[in-house]
Nucleic acid binder design. Structure first.
Length: 506
RNA sequence: GCCCCCAUCGUCUAGUGGCCCAGGACAACACCCUUUCAAGGUGUAGAUCGCGGGUUCGAAUCCCGCUGGGGGUACCA
């Protein structure tokens, strides 16, 4: 059992380079869960030190995604907090990082490096040409005298600030998730990483660490791809004389085919794609919580509060999970089925509006009609976005191919197994006749009448009902027939049956 | 190449030395229910716990090696 001692302050610090994919949401979620379970604070910070990859609006988009799954923050760019600002470029503009850079430089823990990117590139190429396996840059400037540095600076040459990493010895750190032994690397494997670009902008390694320190972050839960750079961070904490936070590297979420981690380009995993398709936040929350964490050997469906109560870091496992959209979809279906009719109607309306099946906003009668239709499709929905397709025939005309309907269907679909066109036409004619005098037009009456008719015609119920289903919906797979007829109304039902009968009779 | 991390059914996982010839869920398949499709119910199949060595009376569980997968190796994060 891992003891977590308060205070607990964690953060999620995305880089605004595009949309947030579900892997990022999962990392954020574990941080949030950790903070909520152990009674700490969850901080959101924007790490936008990479000017080249910066995408305007991405930070806002990410915040929207986070809130959508139900992750809120105690301190952040939009709400502020005691250690703001929470955007790195703003902090840089305020000069927050400079004093720390000076401190590193004057204590000899870092040095100014005057090699250019081009020179570096050349050195790498040369090294590769000579068959050198790994190129680790440690500049000659690390041993320069103050005079040499001053001279280079006086000539106006741009420089970066690099960490002066030890040549010998080892650096190690422990990890809450990768328990057991510490992770240790030989310092000889390290290189003098760049801390500050020639533009004066600090890089992630430096900026995040200063921010974490100033923001009193106690536990760093981040994706496992950061494990290799953790030694640099340890060295930096040592250089500053600060106590490092506790680390916990959460497992990655791999692509569905297992070939590599999720990629924004290759995989359809942008968080917004999920609300666009009609996923419920609760389902996404529940699914993501189970990617790398579990409660026991059988509990899967859990509310937000239950997960918060049960989430402990020792049940987070170190091995990577694989993106499994089928499982998410199944869970989404479970959560949709838990919703009331009114709730489903409310959530489905925007999809129907977008498909121009109803107005935007819907009229009062449209709203009422949609609510009337929900029970027919409620348990058949796995994605709310499927609703327009499932309900389309209630809003558009349906007719056999060649007819006048907006939704046309193949005549052959009309003919049930072991029947022919003439027989089907006769059955539909009989159905039309008996239904045209039916009062009241209710589900119960419809069922009673049509069952009696099937018996009278010596047809199996499925044969008769199948033909009527296609006539009325234009498809073989549809909601239950009697409910459909009742919801569609007498006039429209009869007109469609007549059209089918006539088409088959020609 | 080098460094680091990881390793239980196709997938997500339970399992921390005997309760496991390995449990649950998704997916698959079959049957039941049934007017189609779902939902629901029942069941089947699917993992010699990656491989090989140890330690132990006893190992999926501990140790070592190998293999495989992933990640890192930027003036990206």
């Amino acid at each position: 059992m891992i003891e977590i001692t308060p205070p607990v302050r964690v953060r999620f610090a995305p880089s605004p380079t595009g949309f947030l994919h579900i892997g990022g949401v999962r990392t954020a979620l574990f941080n949030w869960l950790f903070a909520r379970h152990y009674g700490g604070q969850f901080i959101l910070r924007v790490e936008d030190t990479d000017e080249k990859r910066y995408v305007p609006g991405a930070a806002e988009d990410m915040m929207y995604s986070l809130r959508w799954v139900g992750i809120d923050w105690d301190e952040g760019p939009d709400i502020g907090g005691p250690y703001g600002p929470y955007v790195q470029t703003e902090r840089h503009a305020l000069g927050i990082y400079q004093q720390y850079i000076d401190q590193l430089l004057s204590s000899g823990k870092a040095y100014k490096s005057f090699v250019t990117e081009q020179e570096l590139e050349q050195m790498r190429a040369d090294a590769a040409a000579r068959g050198i396996k790994s190129f680790r840059y440690r500049g000659a400037e690390r041993d320069w005298t103050p005079e040499q540095v001053a001279a280079a600076e006086a000539s106006g040459r741009p420089y970066t600030v690099r960490l002066k990493t030890p040549l010998e010895g080892t650096t190690s750190f422990s990890d809450l998730i990768r328990g057991g032994d510490k992770i240790t690397v030989n310092n000889s494997e390290l290189q003098d990483i760049v801390l500050v670009k020639s533009s004066g902008m600090p890089l992630y390694h430096l900026a995040h660490l200063i921010d974490d320190h100033e923001m009193r972050v106690t536990h760093v839960l981040r994706a496992e791809e950061w494990v290799p750079s953790a030694p640099y961070h340890l060295l930096l904490y040592q250089a500053f004389g600060w106590t490092p936070p506790v680390f916990a590297h959460v497992p990655a979420i791999l692509r569905q085919d297992g070939k590599g981690k999720l990629s924004k380009r290759k995989d359809d995993v942008a968080t917004n794609r999920f609300w666009e398709r009609g996923y419920l936040p609760a389902a996404m929350f529940n699914y993501l919580a189970l990617q790398g964490w579990s409660y026991d050997d059988h509990t899967e469906i859990m509310s937000r509060d239950e997960v918060v109560e049960r989430f402990t870091i020792d049940r987070v496992q170190p091995s990577p999970a694989r993106w499994n959209p089928d499982k998410l979809k199944d869970m989404n279906g479970i959560y949709i089925r838990k919703l009331s009719t009114a709730e489903v109607a409310e959530r489905i309306m925007p999809f129907l509006s977008r498909a121009t099946l109803i107005g935007d906003p819907p009229s009062g009668s449209e709203r009422a009609y949609v609510e009337r239709l929900i029970p027919l499709v409620h348990e058949r929905l796995e994605e709310l976005g499927d609703a327009p397709e499932l309900l389309e025939f209630f809003f558009r005309d349906v007719a056999p191919a060649g007819g006048a309907g907006a939704l046309e269907y193949d005549l052959a679909l009309l003919i049930p197994k072991k029947m022919d066109a003439a027989g089907t036409a006769a059955a539909l004619a009989a159905a039309h006749a008996v239904l045209s005098t039916l009062e009241p037009w209710t589900e119960g009456q419809l069922e009673e009448t049509l069952r009696a008719l099937a018996e009278e015609l010596e047809l199996k119920p499925g044969q008769l009902f199948g033909a009527i289903r296609v006539a009325v919906t234009g498809r073989t797979i549809a909601p239950p027939l009697f409910e459909t007829l009742a919801a569609l109304g007498k006039d429209r039902s009869l007109a469609r049956i007549a059209a089918a009968r006539d088409a088959l009779s020609v």
